[in-house]
Design a protein around this nucleic acid. Structure first.
Length: 584
DNA sequence: GCCGTTTTCGGCCCGACTGTTTTCAGTCG
């Protein structure tokens, strides 16, 4: 049975949604999109659910009913989907490839295919260059030009990008707009405000008495490469950094409704609007209305309160139960920003890091950290010059020396120990004993099958010395998928063997992902938030980790390194002693 | 195609902007 990934199922459902959109089918496209989005971001693989509990487990996925369950099961059984094949037969078009162009949707694809037999991006580019597009009914010069420019952009753009590489730019743009006359509010909304691990564009909202002036300033910022849209209260630009930015400007008393609208997520908004509708109200970016009467718009708190619920932190606005919790006044108290007191994964120039231990210490202190763990790679990671037992001992001496010089700061002796293919560690027991925190990670054999990989990691976690599993699923955003592991079993083992799971918040990793954090936390597994810094400039990413922990509904008490250093060390020491005692 | 403290049938979020139009369809968020 082919192991079809969630990503693959989601891609197929998105594709179906576009084909149905093309045929003007009502409502179904959104049903498929909604299901695709849920499957794409859920914590466990649908395939694992199916193997364990059969079709009923698939049917239990929110947004997936009888029809889609059948289709998913067919994919698992045959690796194919007859329904998609029949859609493709009718319109043999690479629809998602073409609709990736900004401003080109399913309806245009249909015309392009019917009139010019355009099936993919290459056909489209050729037709546009030959000036054939402008002659089509409903198309003209401008559309043809937009298509050509859109194709050029697509060639350079990378799709969704890691938040951490762009977040500073988003806020820099916000800050530039702050000084515009007439402005009362300006804020970054959208997936940046929700702190999704990857983003597609920037959504900004502002309130101003002079929207024209503000939009003028926005579209003429030095960061802007091209203006895509510009209306009375909205503009859409393409930045030189190969990412788009959207600005919505409304009057001051609409700040709350505008911010809510532009923060999303889409499905969070849809649920709120449906709730408003059930009461005979309407909800839009201008407020909540009963007929023409305005019920709320000034602040988000007021908006939520009018709907009978508590204010919901943006990080969890994904329609994953937060609305129901807010209605019952039972939202979790999410870990506050600034809670993490020390970073427990840092590489230095002893292996593949760029800076010395002392440089890392200085940078960490500047950030307000009270401690860091030095976690250079170990022996078998040869390309990084991994340390063996002797190397670790030499490094320990160096750490002792620096610790003596720093009274108000503590360096913890640790390592990122390699889990070998059979689940053994590449540092012997004597070496392990000398470390204060023992963290382990997989760095090879990524293609092992799920059973082998899962057992391998669980075997490592059983080792009584092991405290933390680093970047548990191994994903690199946009480059490498998670390795095949059964995250449920990993979480169960983490609980059983008292091993913390890392939320590695280097922007390209963000691993554990939000939905896995939520599962781990629900299972009572402890989390640590680390940057995996290889350079002093990486330490600042810790707030991205806090953001993602919030997205996983984590509380401060779920995260070990919110504790002061003595408690952190005591915690791990106790775990080790308990495990050694049990072993005997 | 999904879903249900009104429901297993009858609903399904809402508005701005563009381009090609003479009142709107398509796209986007």
């Amino acid at each position: 049975m082919p192991r079809i990934s969630n990503k693959k199922i989601a891609d197929i459902f998105y594709e179906i949604a576009e084909y149905l959109e093309m045929e003007d089918v009502a409502f179904k496209p959104r049903a498929y999109e909604r299901a695709a989005q849920v499957i794409e971001t859920m914590s466990e693989e649908a395939y694992d659910l199916y193997k364990k509990d059969g079709a009923k487990a698939i049917d239990a996925i929110p947004g997936v009913g009888k029809g889609m369950t059948e289709k998913i099961v067919e994919l698992f059984k045959t690796g194919r989907l007859k329904y998609l094949q029949s859609l493709k037969k009718k319109f043999p078009v690479k629809i998602r490839e073409i609709t990736a162009i900004e401003g080109v949707g399913p309806k245009m694809v249909k015309t392009l295919y019917k009139k010019l037999k355009i099936k993919n991006l290459r056909d489209l580019e050729r037709a546009a260059r030959a000036k054939k597009i402008a002659k089509l009914p409903g198309f003209a010069q401008k559309t043809q030009q937009n298509i050509l420019e859109g194709i050029e952009f697509l060639k350079k753009a990378k799709g969704r990008v890691p938040l951490g590489h762009y977040i500073e730019l988003a806020y820099a743009i916000r800050d530039k707009l702050k000084k515009t006359p007439g402005i009362s509010h300006v804020e970054v909304a959208g997936s940046v405000r929700r702190r999704r691990a990857t983003i597609k564009d920037f959504d900004l909202i502002a309130c101003s008495t002079q929207p024209k002036k503000l939009l003028q300033k926005f579209t003429s910022l030095s960061e802007v490469a091209r203006v895509l849209e510009r209306g009375k209260n909205r503009a859409f630009v393409r930045l030189k950094e190969k990412i788009d930015a959207d600005l919505l400007v409304l009057p001051k008393d609409k700040y709350g409704s505008a911010l809510l609208h532009f923060t999303g997520s889409r499905f969070h908004n849809i649920k709120l609007r449906t709730m408003a509708k059930e009461r005979g109200w309407t909800l839009n970016e201008y407020g909540i209305f009963k007929g023409k009467k305005l019920l709320a718009s000034k602040t988000e708190e007021e908006m939520y309160k009018t709907l009978g619920m508590d204010w919901i932190p943006p990080e969890i606005r994904e329609d994953r139960g937060e609305i129901e919790a807010a209605l019952k006044h039972k939202l979790p108290k999410l870990i506050p920003y600034g809670s993490v007191q020390g970073d427990l994964q840092i590489q230095t120039n002893w292996t593949d890091g760029a800076n010395s231990i002392e440089e890392m210490v200085r940078a960490a202190k500047k950030l307000g950290h009270k401690y860091i763990a030095i976690t250079d790679h170990t022996r078998t990671l040869a390309m990084t010059g991994g340390l063996d037992e002797k190397g670790l001992a030499r490094q320990a001496k160096e750490i002792d020396k620096i610790n003596k010089k720093n009274k108000d700061f503590r360096i913890i002796k640790s390592a990122e120990i390699n889990i070998l293919k059979d689940g053994k560690l590449d540092i012997n027991e004597n070496g392990l004993k000398k470390l204060e925190i023992i963290s382990v990670a997989v760095h090879s054999g990524f293609s092992q099958n799920e059973r082998v990989m899962t057992n391998r990691i669980i075997k490592a976690m059983q080792n009584p010395y092991v405290n933390i599993l680093f970047h548990p699923t191994g994903r690199i955003l946009g480059r490498r998928p998670e390795y095949a592991i059964n995250i449920d079993e990993i979480i169960k083992a983490a609980k059983k063997f008292n091993v913390a799971l890392e939320l590695d918040c280097y922007p390209d990793r963000m691993d554990l992902k939000d939905t896995n954090v939520r599962k781990a936390v629900a299972a009572g597994v402890k989390i640590v938030i680390d940057t995996d810094a290889h350079h002093i400039d990486h330490l600042k990413y810790i707030s991205l980790g806090e953001a993602q922990a919030r997205r996983g509904w984590a509380k401060k008490s779920d995260v070990i390194n919110t504790l002061p250093v003595n408690k952190v060390l005591a915690f791990f020491k106790k775990v080790r002693l308990d495990k050694l005692r049990k072993k005997r």
